[in-house]
Design a binder for these strands. Structure first.
Lengths: 239, 239
DNA sequence: CGAAAACCATGACAAATGTCATGTTTTCTA
DNA sequence: TAGAAAACATGACATTTGTCATGGTTTTCG
């Protein structure tokens, strides 16, 4: 089950901006408005940006680091919806639907994150139809991605979903490592289980199996993909 | 797991319009543009409006009847994403993200449905910022709804999800019937299973149990809710 | 550093759910 | 309206997955 989504990215004066951003249509004057009242903060691991059920006051723009966005279930178990990273921004969706946050966001690894107040963001948004249009397009795309995740959660086995998740992580965070791919993100087994939508022990067991079958190697928390084709087969992408 | 979503509704000249539509901001001239090239067709049960993987050419506006929107899994099993009814419109999301349809739509009961070509819809949309804004708000809301469904699919048991689904259906399609609520939608057990995300037999068994426990009554395909509180408890809404 | 906490791993078992088989009932349609 | 097809229902059983228990390992932090 793929967590890869078309990340919404925002160029931000003084932040390291990415040239491939979907939001390159922003003019300098708009960027200046966004920068005017923004605050940039460094977060440590496990700090929380916002909590489900609270009122959004602005948007968060991730300059570096990784953030998990999740919903808490009544059993105390998290369901991770996606992992945001450099260039993504968070919290604009609840802002636009004028609702309380529907999910929480917690830092996975040390992060530098800007906060832009609601009013500045909305001002730019409404004065810039092209920007608005691109944002609309991105939200529509994300809705499609979320529907795909829902269907795969319902239709694929845990084993298939874990294989698919490992492949997705490789796509998103893969680094070359002596002929194979090392996944460059520190995820606890519990977090991985909360992405896949299963119990921690089940993930641990399946990882052991994948390792026995030479599909992956485990070096501490790091996962190394040894045989992507075999994983692809496990993920049932051939039907 | 609630399927209730903030339905996006559109007033349509010559169609029976609903006063409570979110899109009452449309002026007559806009409605005229929308009506100009629209075609209204009557569909029978099991006819399909559009197929996953095909290119959207416009939007569908449901005047009467009910339509299931679903994704097909590699095992041939459908996952129903939501059920659209009178006043809803379909297909605008893929249009806006400029992607192929990510799901299919099939008529559940005889329906009258208008089709408005892409160009007319986009013309109105782009000439009417208020309308655009409302649509954006609705899409953002739907994304939140979809995330909630995803989390509940992952975190709740089949039993809990079925109870929640019955309550949702009662909310959406409930009719007064001799002191209790008859759900006015004809869903096969298979469709119900594909909403809940489980096997048909499991749904049948659980319905029998709910019936034994006096929570529901079954009259052919119709489901009657006898004890909503008890169902609510089954759905674990008390945590 | 060193103790405490968190995390990882594995076994044993229970529970939930899916699958297959079979028979009945309802619905469709020629 | 009769026969066929689809849908419903239920039993038996297999499989998957979750839960609990236990012990080893790593990480954290005073």
């Amino acid at each position: 089950m793929s967590l890869k989504n078309s990340k919404i990215q925002l160029q931000c004066i003084a932040c390291q901006s990415r040239g491939d951003s979907h939001f390159s249509s922003l003019k300098d004057e708009d960027l200046e408005i966004l920068s005017e009242h923004k605050s940039c903060v460094t977060y440590k691991k496990n700090q929380t940006l916002f909590y489900e059920g609270t009122r959004p006051m602005g948007i968060f723009c991730i300059n570096s680091g990784k953030v998990k966005v999740f919903k808490m279930g009544s059993n105390g178990k998290e369901q991770i919806l996606f992992i945001a990273q450099k260039g993504d921004f968070l919290g604009y969706r609840s802002l636009l639907s004028e609702e309380l946050y529907g999910s929480s966001a917690t830092v996975l690894e040390p992060a530098a994150i800007c906060f832009i107040p609601k009013s500045d963001f909305l001002k730019v948004l409404h004065s810039n139809p092209e920007f608005f249009g691109k944002l609309m397009k991105a939200v529509c795309h994300e809705l499609g991605v979320m529907e795909t995740k829902l269907a795969q959660l319902s239709q694929k086995s845990v084993r298939e979903r874990l294989a698919a998740t490992i492949l997705m992580l490789k796509e998103t965070y893969g680094m070359e490592g002596e002929g194979s791919e090392v996944i460059d993100i520190v995820l606890s087994r519990e977090d991985l289980a909360n992405i896949v939508g299963t119990a921690t022990e089940t993930v641990i067991r399946l990882l052991s199996e994948f390792k026995s079958d030479k599909m992956i190697a485990l070096e501490g928390k790091k996962i190394k993909v040894l045989d992507a084709d075999k994983l692809l087969h496990e993920a049932d992408f051939y039907g």
